[in-house]
């Protein structure tokens, strides 16, 4: 069962539309129980990480998501859904995040147009089923002002150039997270969702 965390994220509708387009009937995870019952969990996100953290805490979803991921279950984080996995973010003067992935979230250098907005290439650093049918260097749609820096560089599965090299796909076991928005990235983006859901289905005992 595919579940999408509903904490009021701005891109919730688009993520639902993408999953439905692929022929699945996603469930909305609004409580901690919903999160823990998921077979495949998607955490959407757009906007500010601090706002997302606040919403997740208020709804009691933060510890459920941490537990779900700690159990090694299939998880896909999108944009802010990637950033909140980290220890902390520089955004809004500094905020603690979920602390699931050691590392920090930093602001893009000021000499660039911010946000990094538009289609940019993702260089695949590892072979992984999430990239099945997605050409190396395919374009995805980005819109963000902060980027993640995991302490463990081996987690960087995809990289993108925007003045600096940023981690655009992070993978640790069954945890996959993208800085770009696959639900806004045409056929290549739909493929990412499809691959993730297939991975989750194969993961079933």
């Amino acid at each position: 069962m595919v579940s999408i965390v509903d904490y009021g994220a701005g891109n919730l509708r688009s993520v639902i539309n993408a999953v439905v387009k692929l022929g699945y009937q996603p469930k909305l995870a609004v409580t901690a129980e919903d999160v823990l019952e998921a077979g495949a969990l998607i955490l959407p996100g757009v906007g500010a990480a601090a706002h997302t953290m606040h919403s997740l805490k208020r709804l009691g979803l933060d510890s459920a998501i941490s537990r779900y991921i700690a159990e090694g279950r299939p998880f896909l984080g999108i944009c802010i859904g990637l950033q909140v996995l980290f220890s902390s973010t520089e955004e809004g003067g500094g905020h603690d995040c979920l602390g699931i992935v050691p590392g920090v979230v930093k602001r893009l250098p000021d000499n660039l147009k911010i946000p990094h907005m538009g289609w940019n290439q993702v260089k695949q650093k590892i072979e992984h089923p999430i990239f099945n049918g997605v050409p190396d260097g395919a374009n995805f749609y980005f819109v963000h002002s902060y980027y993640v820096e995991p302490d463990d560089r081996a987690l960087v599965a995809g990289e993108t150039e925007y003045g600096i090299t940023i981690c655009s796909v992070l993978i640790r076991d069954n945890l996959v997270a993208t800085q770009f928005h696959p639900e806004k990235s045409g056929e290549a983006g739909l493929k990412i969702y499809d691959n993730f859901i297939r991975m989750a289905q194969q993961d079933k005992p």
Partner: peptide
């Protein structure tokens, strides 16, 4: 449109 078109 958003059900058919996966771009911004």
């Amino acid at each position: 449109i958003s059900q058919e078109v996966f771009m911004p």
